[in-house]
Nucleic acid binder design. Structure first.
Lengths: 169, 169
DNA sequence: AGGAAATTGAAATTCATTTTCATTTGGAAA
DNA sequence: TTTCCAAATGAAAATGAATTTCAATTTCCT
């Protein structure tokens, strides 16, 4: 299923939130520090570097992708630490873990408060985010019809983006 | 994410199709034979047994689960063959591969023509299928708004089923 | 500064999945 | 039916992402 994707190579964000709606980088790093302190964890150079790089990159990265970026500049940072820090960021609510059809775990900044879904191009691998209230409402509605209460959901549309012939197949 | 699920233990189907709408077991096995012949593959005892057991079980099984059932009666059938036969069934359109939040690959009979989505209970692990035209239409609509054409999609609602307190949380 | 506790990172482990390869089997052609 | 070759089988090995281990290092509280 979805075997068309070899690798998700590039990533785009097309969210519709107002500019300035998301916290600044410094604010996010502050939040991480608070979380660490609160949990009795320690602030370290590595965590700072990794968090900064992660927040700078911004889009759906795997632990490995992020590690590759980081280890060029900081040969003293190991894969394991990148991996663990991403988990930590996810726990603290600064990142969200996602698994798409290629079965790799990706991390995406923030998102705790801004749930959204994804359009994934099977040709070029680009990921476009979207949020749609109609969708949220319909999900609730359907769930209710089954006596089900929704805590979270996963919704991915796989197909062709505009560039790859989305309009006219 | 979704780490609440330890294991998906049981599986229910609540699809809304009319009774008799889906092909009978013999019909399905016929379809497999045709597919095999068409592709120049061979019919074997193992494939027959595995396909029968799979179609009999009916619901979202992993290769391992199916293997465990089969090897009790047929000690001469190996895991690899079960694994490969499930892949084959998926190719032939008699099964669909699905990966839920626990990251195991499950197979489900038929489904090539009947696309549906899933409600997954985070407490008891039950899987309920549903199909909803409103959902399909909305997906198309949203995709179109992004210049995207949908080939396939994945949509899972995670929460509580009726038994596990779905109505009143 | 001292020291307990947490962190780091290289290496090892886990675990589902997939591949390898020697052997067996199915089934088309003789 | 017998022959023969490609396909299938299954045990074992390989793969690869995710996770854990553990000794050495670092943080940060007192």
């Amino acid at each position: 299923m979805f075997s068309g994707i070899r690798k998700i190579i590039s990533v785009k964000s097309t969210s519709r939130k107002k500019p300035g709606a998301s916290p600044k980088l410094s604010e996010k790093k502050e939040r991480l520090k608070l979380f660490l302190k609160e949990k009795g964890f320690k602030s370290t150079k590595q965590r700072d570097i990794i968090a900064s790089e992660f927040l700078a990159v911004g889009e759906h990265v795997t632990a490995e992708e992020l590690y590759n970026r980081i280890c060029k500049k900081h040969s003293n940072i190991g894969f394991t630490t990148v991996y663990r820090t991403l988990k930590l960021l996810a726990e603290s609510g600064l990142a969200t873990e996602r698994v798409f059809a290629d079965n790799l775990t990706r991390y995406e900044p923030l998102a705790a408060e801004e749930h959204h879904d994804h359009l994934i191009c099977l040709k070029c691998g680009s990921i476009t985010e979207f949020e749609d209230q109609r969708m949220e409402r319909l999900q609730e509605k359907i769930a209710t019809e089954f006596g089900f209460s929704v805590e979270t959901h996963k919704m991915e549309l796989y197909g062709r983006c505009r560039k790859c012939g989305g309009g006219n197949i």
